[in-house]
């Protein structure tokens, strides 16, 4: 297995005491990974850097010029145009509202459902999980029409809540399964201990289990935030009567025309709209990186 080969080269964090030579080797060896990681990551982010550099180029330089990442002529026109064309000023607050609502809806429903389903003895569990997994494979893109009719009948058609519900509904399965898998892995004793202390079901969930699930919360938040942030079709369809409520994902499509695309404007818009996601990532990565290490004492 490739995994095991990799680990052969991976020393444990505290290098075991040994002869000096070996000790030094242990100190150097981890750094060898950088020889691989640095060029690999540079190559990896090249298209992203390219996007940033295109945002500072003129359309003709971007399309006709060479592959240089440094623009010959720095221009800020693209950002100017992006700001007005994609209506960043108007749409940013909407996008934040929409994305946060989606994340909250997903977290609330999937954490509770995942916790409930993590109990192995729950009657009907198999059926429910079976249905969840089965629906994972139904393509969702084209089911927008029935969803639209439903939201319309609920009277939520011209608000971001309707859009958020429509966005959160179909993506629930993944987070539920993640939470379920996570909670199922937590030792029962921990829960029993809480119960002995007199905590009820809800209290155990809120005070003991939920804080432990930070890595999953972080993952679910991050991924759903990104999807919601970039989402296009759903916010478009559910704000038809109230275009002032649209999100950036919709605004970004203003760069696409029947007769060609404003690539540099799009690149500038993409840069602006990526910044919040990167910030969210930096915030959240602590949760799934530091996570619960050491928290679960057995």
């Amino acid at each position: 297995m490739s995994t095991t080969e990799l680990v052969r080269d991976t020393p444990a964090p505290p290098a075991p005491a040994g002869p000096d030579r070996r000790n030094r080797w242990y100190r150097i060896r981890p750094n060898l990974w950088h020889l691989f990681l640095i060029p690999f990551c540079l190559l990896w982010v090249y298209p992203f850097i390219w996007m940033i550099s295109a945002a500072f180029k003129s359309p003709s330089e971007m399309l006709l010029g060479g592959l240089s990442l440094i623009p010959d002529d720095w221009t800020f026109d693209n950002f100017d145009r992006a700001w007005t064309t994609a209506k960043f000023g108007d749409y940013t607050i909407n996008t934040i509202t929409f994305s946060i609502t989606v994340v909250l809806l997903v977290l609330l429903t999937s954490a509770t459902a995942g916790y409930a389903l993590s109990r192995p003895d729950l009657p009907g569990k198999k059926v429910i999980v079976g249905i969840l997994i089965a629906t994972m494979f139904i393509p969702h893109g084209y089911t927008i029409i029935p969803v639209f009719l439903l939201i319309n009948d609920l009277g939520l058609n011209n608000g971001l809540l309707g859009a958020a519900l429509a966005q959160a509904g179909p993506v629930l399965v993944v987070p539920i399964l993640l939470f379920m898998g996570f909670f199922a892995g937590i030792p029962r004793d921990l829960e029993d201990a809480a119960r002995v202390d007199g905590a009820g079901y809800v209290r155990t969930f809120l005070r003991v289990m939920l804080p432990l699930s930070r890595p999953v919360i972080g993952t679910v938040t991050l991924l759903n935030f990104i999807t919601a942030w970039n989402s296009f079709f759903i916010p478009l369809v559910f704000t038809l009567g109230a275009p002032e409520l649209r999100t950036l994902g919709v605004g970004m499509f203003s760069f696409f025309g029947q007769e060609g695309t404003d690539w540099t404007g799009l690149a500038a818009g993409a840069c602006i709209s990526t910044v919040p996601i990167v910030i969210v990532f930096l915030f959240l990565q602590r949760t799934f990186v530091e996570g619960i290490a050491g928290a679960v004492k057995t």
């Binding site: 089911t143 439903l150 429509a166 959160a168 509904g169």
Partner: peptide
């Protein structure tokens, strides 16, 4: 809560 959301936006459209 999950069931409501799920029925409305996954099962029903399906």
């Amino acid at each position: 809560p999950a069931a409501l959301l799920f029925c409305g936006f996954s099962i029903w459209p399906m």
